[in-house]
């Protein structure tokens, strides 16, 4: 048996404090703007064609008037043992040595098998060519590739920002540290519910938070070892 890839590289992870999340969806908007995510339109969106790399799931507990709403931002969990990866016949999705669940658009032939094997339903398929209404078409992020029809896409943990942060740290001749990299969702979170960083560095904020007594991972029982940790009082 082969050994796991032993890497000195940073291991990216996220912690989301559900007790802080207000469900404002600023992260969703920020993600759309940052990652050139297509606009589906009202009808197609209702038919399941909308693309949201991050979404805020709403769950209601109890009956009116004694009702509680829970919010849970869900994006690709970047599982260490991701079910989506081995089913891809062409290595379009694979595991990077930074623990990211990578998606190579150019390799993808569009079997959609990965999406079917994702228990978190966070993979999105480009069924048609993307169209942006004016003036959104003029605000595309040049650092992110636009995905055309026939390929799968999903949250990348803002890989373009990760690269930029790593380059900066390298230029300054130091290890990566908290604050070097912040994905668009983390940056825009008004409640500061989201934290991003290198979990391999025991002094980092994510490493500290992920050991919290409130920590759990989504559908942990599946053994996918997600890199996203949720904090919740668990009431």
């Amino acid at each position: 048996m082969e050994e796991k890839v032993e890497s000195k590289k940073p291991q990216w992870a996220m912690v989301i404090d559900l007790d802080r999340c207000t469900g404002c969806e600023a992260c969703v908007v920020a993600c759309h703007a940052e990652n050139n995510i297509r606009i589906a339109g009202e009808g197609p969106a209702a038919g399941g064609r909308s693309v949201n790399w991050i979404r805020v799931e709403r769950y209601y507990e109890g009956e009116y008037p004694d009702i509680r709403v829970k919010f849970m931002p869900v994006m690709c969990q970047h599982c260490e043992e991701a079910p989506c990866e081995p089913v891809c016949p062409v290595y379009a999705t694979y595991h990077t040595d930074e623990g990211l669940n990578g998606q190579v658009y150019n390799r993808c032939v569009g079997t959609r098998y990965c999406a079917n094997n994702c228990p978190y339903t966070v993979r999105f398929f480009n069924f048609l060519d993307p169209v942006w209404p004016e003036p959104l078409s003029k605000s595309l992020n040049p650092e992110v590739s636009v995905r055309y029809r026939g390929v799968m896409e999903k949250c990348t943990f803002c890989i373009q920002r990760i690269r930029k942060g790593e380059d900066k740290a390298k230029d300054e001749g130091r290890e990566i540290r908290d604050g070097d990299v912040n994905p668009a969702c983390v940056q825009s979170c008004t409640a500061r519910a989201m934290t991003f960083g290198n979990i391999a560095d025991p002094t980092s904020e994510v490493a500290r938070l992920s050991k919290s007594g409130r920590a759990s991972r989504l559908m942990e029982e599946l053994g996918t070892k997600p890199r996203v940790t949720y904090l919740s009082r668990g009431d």
Binding site: M1, E2, K4, V5, E80, E81, A82, P83, C84, E85, P86, V87, C88, Y91, T93, Y94, H95, K225
Partner: peptide
């Protein structure tokens, strides 16, 4: 030769 990890499976996966 490809040497890419997917799903935490070993590079040579005899079962598959």
């Amino acid at each position: 030769r490809v040497g890419v990890v997917t799903g935490g499976m070993p590079i040579v996966s005899p079962w598959a």
